[in-house]
């Protein structure tokens, strides 16, 4: 088992003919992902790499290729509309990689996705991978290993770092989810924690948070109530000065709230093993779960 995506997922890539879209589509296909369609307005009828049909709209991709998951590589100016198009067409899951979408556009998009019953991951995220089954995103597939640890993170490369550490100590991953670094996103830590708790394969969860917002505090609230799996957490940004935006729009400490120390404290109180150094993520999980 895994969460969100598996070997049966039928993926449509919005923006498949763009530079980023085409590069990453090839990487996903190479990994074994079932990419059944692409969408680029005005390029319907073409075939991507002689194998993937391109449509003008997501609706067509749904109807003709039975896509149920959409991976979105569309520039920020058009990304909000692209997500809504995916939701309106009825895809089960939409993942938006795009960085730089205006926050108020996302306020509108998140409400729209909720109305349509589409789960949104991101924006500004690396996507989701269920190792050995399906990769829907931009993460390097080769550092992953199929296994029992769920990974949830607001960051991209820091997730790869954590996954690499897990793989090196022999711990594979059930699913790794990048929920994205923006202030307003579709899926929270808590949503993913709930899904991992229901997943039979997942035996432990790594949670990688960062400064800003209150998503980690909300996760802690939920975890405090008898969460069935062991959780190891790391919070990035202890050295960040208040009021400065560290790349991610979400990573700004406004008014002293959302500091790394506060997040670490509440997670600790909720029974989470909080590591001070990002280098300790893998070995700590290995100690808890025990490896061969």
């Amino acid at each position: 088992m895994s969460i969100l995506v598996d070997a049966d997922s039928r993926v449509v890539v919005q923006g498949i003919t763009g530079t980023e879209g085409s590069f990453h589509t090839r990487q996903c296909i190479e990994y074994g992902t079932n990419v059944v369609a692409g969408v680029t307005p005005g390029k319907g009828g073409q075939t991507f790499d002689d194998s993937v049909p391109v449509f003008n709209t997501v609706e067509e991709a749904r109807a003709k290729a039975e896509a149920d998951v959409s991976l979105i590589f569309v520039p920020p100016a058009f990304a909000a509309d692209a997500i809504k198009e995916a939701a309106a067409a009825g895809v089960r899951l939409a993942l938006c990689v795009t960085e730089g979408i205006p926050t108020l556009d996302m306020v509108d998009v998140v409400a729209y996705c909720l109305e349509c019953g589409t789960r949104l991951i991101g924006p500004n995220c690396p996507g989701v991978i269920s190792p050995g089954k399906c990769k829907v995103g931009i993460m390097p597939g080769f550092v992953h290993l199929e296994g029992i640890v769920g990974v949830i993170s607001r960051s991209g490369t820091l997730t790869y770092e954590a996954v690499d550490q897990l793989t090196r100590v022999g711990l594979g991953q059930s699913t790794s989810v990048g929920i994205g670094g923006d202030p307003v996103n579709g899926t929270s830590f808590r949503d993913c924690l709930e899904m991992f708790a229901e997943d039979e394969e997942t035996k432990g969860v790594v949670l990688i948070g960062e400064i800003g917002g209150s998503a980690e505090e909300e996760a802690a609230d939920y975890l405090a109530d008898d969460y069935p799996l062991p959780v190891v957490a790391f919070i990035a940004g202890r050295t960040a000065p208040p009021g400065k935006r560290m790349g991610h729009a979400g990573a700004i400490i406004a008014g002293g709230k959302g500091t790394a120390d506060e997040k670490m404290r509440v997670l600790s109180e909720a029974g989470v093993t909080v590591v001070e150094s990002p280098s300790a993520i893998g070995v700590t999980m290995a100690e808890i779960l025990g490896t061969d």
Binding site: S153, R154, S155, G156, I208, G247
Partner: peptide
């Protein structure tokens, strides 16, 4: 990457 950059600073 922003997250890894922050973690490196830490």
């Amino acid at each position: 990457g922003a997250g890894l950059a922050m973690a490196t600073m830490d």
